[in-house]
């Protein structure tokens, strides 16, 4: 598997990481190498094998429906780069 620049640009967009066009070629090479490396898995016969969902041996635990958290607005906003009137603030989103 060999990735082209366009695919790198698409992945970078999906991952929201700006990749300057000048770097795309190099990155395409690196990522292709990794993909080539992992392609050896095709040798393994996995017909009928369940994909692993978790190595934890127990069943999913459920918690009771009680309000035990929240009400900590100041702490939630404390580390935010920009806030106003109790909101997080981001550049305008146009829908």
């Amino acid at each position: 598997m060999s990735l082209d620049k366009a695919t790198v640009a698409k992945i970078a967009h999906l991952a929201r990481i700006k990749v300057p066009e000048a770097d795309q070629e190099h990155l395409a090479g690196e990522l292709s190498n990794i993909l080539n490396f992992v392609e050896q898995l095709n040798e393994v016969d996995t017909v009928g094998v369940q994909p692993m969902t978790s190595v934890a041996p127990h069943k999913l635990r459920r918690r009771p429906d009680a309000v035990t958290d929240g009400g900590v607005r100041d702490a939630v906003l404390l580390n935010a780069p920009e806030t106003a009137e109790g909101f997080f603030v981001v550049p305008k989103v146009v829908e």
């Binding site: 991952a15 929201r16 990481i17 700006k18 580390n79 780069p81 997080f88 981001v90 550049p91 989103v93």
Partner: peptide
């Protein structure tokens, strides 16, 4: 993503802010 904690690198819009911050 530069919204609630850590680094934020501004951009013209939200998407650009995300991409700059994460880059």
């Amino acid at each position: 993503d530069g919204v609630r904690f850590g680094l934020r690198v501004e951009g013209g819009d939200l998407k650009e802010m995300y991409e700059n911050t994460r880059a």
